[in-house]
Amino acid sequence: MEIAQNQNDPSMVALHGRFDANECDRLDAFVQRMREKGQADLKLDLSAVSFVDSSALASLVWLSKWATANNQRFEVHNPSDSVSVILEITAIDRALTIRNTSPVPQ
């Protein structure tokens, strides 16, 4: 899975590929480095994610809880169709802030 931070909007991070248990630690480390540099708000672009499993969903939930506990912002942007289906079936979409927006130029 590729992880890319938007140069024009540092709070926007795009994931590309399969988001599963093997990738959760990488995303955690990436977000931690962002926080250490002072970037606490996080917008996760999932438009290019082809698959999420329960570990990935747990990562999203954990990011959301951390943001709430620390008065920061966490949003899921433009989830792909396959991700949207999973979020709806599990009703986790009711616990996240999900936005469908125009893409931010890199």
Binding site: I89, T90, A91, I92, A95
Partner: peptide, 22 residues
């Protein structure tokens, strides 16, 4: 938050979806 949950009645299968998050 759980799936799949399927009920078959008279040979017809229907999915029953979550009432809320896990």
């Amino acid at each position: 938050g759980h799936s799949p949950v399927i009920i078959t009645q008279d040979g017809k299968a229907t999915n029953s979806y979550a009432d809320g998050p896990p």
